[in-house]
Simulated scan of single mutants.
Amino acid sequence: MPSSDSASLKPMTARGEATRQRILGAAEEAFGKSGFFRASISDITRGAGVAQGTFYLYFQNKEEVLGELVRHMGRELRRMLTHSIPQDLSRLEAEREGIAAFMRFVSQRQNLYRVVQESLFVDEQIYRDYYMDFARGYISALEKSVEKSEIRDGNLEVWVWILMGVGHFLGLRYGLWAENGLGDAELDAVMDFIRNGIARPADRD
């Protein structure tokens, strides 16, 4: 029987951690390709090359694995953006680099991105936490840009959720569904929208 204490399932050795990471990698592929509800623990252990009983040495159930994968996606995405966006860029330049980097990330980790989207139907709190955590850091970045007069002030929280919505659907359209990804022309169109919105020049304040 799996332990009820999640902390007791954490590996104590480097070999144990390597096994745990293999299980997570196999779960990422199984969930991404088959969906959380269709993928079985047997699919995961077969992909990881471990016995089914080994799974329960590290995780209590599929839901726990899903939660760990979503949190991993959040950490990896924030780390990738930190390293992909030079510190000396203006806010708008950083937005462009961030969108381009995010699209590359989604294209390279399609299964993991699908796992995050499916978590909404498994554990809404995990899904919500993923986006709320990202939004907090994003708002902080925009606040700093306002202080430096790189962008105008406004309802930054609402703006952040709008920008995140843009990134999310671009990720679906050009990260998961398009063979060629997001090209320069499409990225130019995204930045034109971020800079200018949809109002005619004569209608802008």
Rank of each mutant, 00 (worst) to 15 (best):
V116E: 03
V106H: 04
Q110W: 05
R104H: 02
T82Q: 09
A101M: 12
S90V: 00
L92V: 14
S84R: 08
I85H: 00
E76M: 13
S90T: 01
R79A: 15
G98P: 03
S107F: 09
E97P: 05
A100V: 15
Q110C: 04
L112G: 04
R104I: 14
R91I: 03
E76Q: 10
A94S: 14
E97Y: 07
Q87G: 09
H83A: 14
V106P: 03
D88W: 06
P86N: 06
N111C: 14
R114I: 12
Q117T: 05
E93P: 02
L89M: 13
L89Y: 04
F105N: 01
D88G: 08
V116T: 04
L92W: 04
R104M: 11
G98K: 06
V106K: 08
S107I: 13
V115I: 14
V116N: 04
V115R: 06
G98Q: 04
S90K: 11
S107W: 06
G74N: 01
E95K: 04
G98S: 10
S107C: 05
H83V: 15
A100T: 11
E76H: 09
R114A: 06
R78C: 09
V116L: 14
F102R: 08
M103P: 00
M103R: 02
E97Q: 12
R75P: 07
L89K: 09
H83E: 09
V116I: 07
H83R: 05
R79P: 01
H83C: 10
P86R: 06
I99A: 03
V106F: 05
F102Y: 05
Q87T: 04
L81F: 08
M103W: 07
Q110L: 05
L92T: 13
E93V: 09
R75G: 14
L77A: 12
F105H: 11
R109H: 10
R96M: 08
E76I: 11
L77R: 10
S84D: 05
R114E: 04
E93I: 09
I85K: 02
I85N: 00
A100W: 13
R109F: 00
A101T: 02
E95D: 08
R79L: 12
M80W: 15
L112R: 03
S90I: 00
P86M: 08
R79N: 13
S107D: 01
L92A: 13
A101P: 00
E76D: 10
I85G: 01
L81R: 13
L112I: 00
E97V: 15
E95N: 12
L92D: 05
S107T: 10
L89S: 11
Y113R: 06
Q108G: 03
Q87C: 12
G98C: 11
D88Q: 13
E93S: 11
Q110V: 02
A100H: 14
A94E: 07
R79K: 15
F102S: 03
Y113A: 11
L89Q: 07
I85Y: 01
G98W: 05
M80Y: 15
Q108N: 01
F102A: 04
Q108D: 03
H83G: 09
S84V: 13
E95Y: 12
R78V: 10
V115Q: 06
R78N: 07
L81M: 14
M80R: 15
A94C: 12
E93G: 11
